[in-house]
Design a protein around this nucleic acid. Structure first.
Lengths: 344, 344
DNA sequence: AAAAGCTTTTAGATCGATCTAAATTGAAGA
DNA sequence: TCTTCAATTTAGATCGATCTAAAAGCTTTT
């Protein structure tokens, strides 16, 4: 009795091969859709796989072949909807490529980021997409390069020699300043918070250059709390100096939402006697009252770009570094108004 | 010359063993922190691993041992901050357990959910945490059980025979209704949207029971658009019938935010001549004006609970199904007011 | 009929760990 | 000195796929 049914033992390629009267090697070729195998044989093997309920074992395959069909994604914070949308874009493209996302949260801590990337290496990811934690050194990237672990930076860039997907923050900032200037604003504040990183610098630089090109004071950078609940109460910081601003640009929409509340509490009417511009254009912007004018950075698209960059890199591991910088667009709604007595 | 340095070839346990003058088996024991190996030997092996830059190969290990130290997580939608927070909680606990999250998005489509779970099985996940797509049949769960794939349901429950982590939505709804009733409201609407699933039914049931216990009409369930931008314009739906409500409870905070804008547009003052309660208590609730009174469901905590359930299930695969239902809490802020002439 | 040239199939080694069962070592007991 | 026994260490098989190089089948030429 050679055909004893063993209880509960996994169905392997050998079982399939035996059932279809072919060798293990042929069955393997069928799985991998090789053109080498004849049509009739292929059909027989596929039939056998179905009958036995065969499940492909990636783990075993990866051991021999080199690809694991796995991509690591490291973000600093899942709680922030912005990163969640980014992740969503990445996942969609990776999934469509038949690969799988291994997710980790660095908490914006360099230490944890090292931990996490080590773990991913142990799991044999084919590459990683990283939004580098604030304070990440270039050495981190070089380390990965030495390990031959393909890498794409997203949202924040540490080194110009590594693939990068982001948005043109500086230009978004310029659009915001231009727009406010066109409405007659001459004293504009910039409200920031959170960790310092390249995306931060790009926005600050964009703000500096744009304000200067209009001959506007560019020193009014105000730091507000990180906790959304505390931002409203910090609105007074905008008015601490003698010359009060007539408008504020926010580092992101979270700040815009908070300040909008704080300005309301102070009796200011956003869109009438005070102007407010957000950054990121999250879905809430449309739901606020007044509707928030905001610079759209399209995180889902950035995520898709990052994933595509990584797929490209996997296909061609050498080759020069590539950068995909998405354009930003000022989405004008209702939160800005003309300065009285500036234009007819 | 037996010690040729092969270029770029991976460092394996054999290399480590050779360097430390022990066998492959001993080196393996050191990695796994077995108490069998002597202190002096252990030190020598660890030293060798460090010197050679050895990286553990999970893939190889998993082939022989059964555990892959990998957990699949399937959510219906990453774009929704609520699921992002849930994911954050899951990731934290799984990570702390030394395991890794493989993420997938079902798009709330049963079809895709099947695809995705199949893929995860091929990748050899030790178990999965699923927020089942709307319309998921119990057969789906039975399928996984047949495959011996440990499973935890989160947020939505398809079967009582499978582990589940969620929140007590019905009780949250009761608290909301009780609160409004105590303020004198007798005509209360319930605004809903999105797919129909267990969490939906629980809220609707909770609403029905609570309103009936107060002798209030429980039929005022109003369906609003799914897109946040379109909700405001749908506020009129609340007032289509003869007897106009004085308060509305929202299925989630997204709806609350949208309706808040829509009510504002109609000239109603939320918290004064109209009352509004949200559900989920997202961070925005605190930043809105008026501040949103909302039922807190603590998605991060639910995620943590789900992850812990799965870890427990992995430790004890048989054993009765467990349920962890987090309590909900009505967080009172400013969006509700007393009905004029109801109480002294 | 044999040789040459395809297409299709296959045996056997291999990837890098773990597991089993047995071998070694060293100290204590007879 | 010879066992006995616990503490360490190890050889070799094994997990389930892929890869290489060669074999087996078919046609088509010569």
């Amino acid at each position: 009795m050679p055909f004893e049914d063993k209880k509960k033992s996994r169905v392997t390629l050998i079982d399939v091969a035996r059932r279809a009267n072919v060798s293990r090697a042929t069955a393997s070729l069928v799985i991998r859709k090789s053109p080498l195998v004849g049509a009739e044989t292929r059909a027989r093997v596929e039939e056998a796989m179905r009958e036995l309920g065969y499940v492909y074992n990636m783990g075993a395959a990866r051991l021999r072949a080199e690809r694991s069909h796995t991509v690591g994604v490291i973000v600093p914070n899942l709680t922030n909807p912005f990163f969640a949308e980014l992740l969503s874009g990445i996942e969609a493209v990776i999934d469509a490529a038949g690969m799988v996302v291994i997710l980790a949260n660095s908490g914006d801590l360099v230490e944890r980021q090292n931990m996490v990337v080590r773990r991913m290496r142990e799991h044999g990811v084919d590459g990683v997409i990283v939004c580098p934690a604030a304070g990440t050194e270039p050495a981190f990237l070089h380390q990965l390069a030495e390990w031959d672990l393909p890498l794409v930076q997203v949202l924040r860039q540490i080194s110009g020699e590594v693939d990068y997907a982001g948005a043109d923050y500086a230009d978004g900032m310029r659009q915001a300043v231009d727009y406010l200037a066109s409405l007659g604003h001459r004293t504009i504040a910039f409200a920031v918070h959170g960790p310092i990183h390249s995306a931060y610098h790009e926005r600050v630089e964009g703000f500096r250059e744009a304000t200067q090109s209009h001959g506007i004071d560019s020193g009014r950078i105000v730091r507000v709390p990180n906790q959304i609940g505390e931002i409203a109460a910090a609105a007074h910081l905008l008015f601490d100096e003698a010359e009060r601003p007539t408008a504020v640009i926010c580092f992101n929409d979270v700040i815009a939402l908070g300040l909008s509340a704080g300005l309301y509490d102070r009796g200011l009417k956003v869109g009438e006697n005070f102007s407010l511009i957000g950054f990121d254009d999250v879905t809430d912007a449309e739901a606020m009252r007044p509707r928030l004018t905001s610079v759209s950075t399209a995180p889902v698209t950035i995520g898709e770009n990052a994933a595509r960059l990584l797929l490209g890199r996997l296909a061609d591991p050498t080759g020069p570094p590539r950068r995909v910088v998405n354009e930003t667009i000022l989405h004008v709604r209702q939160s800005c108004g003309v300065v009285p007595g500036s234009e007819p």
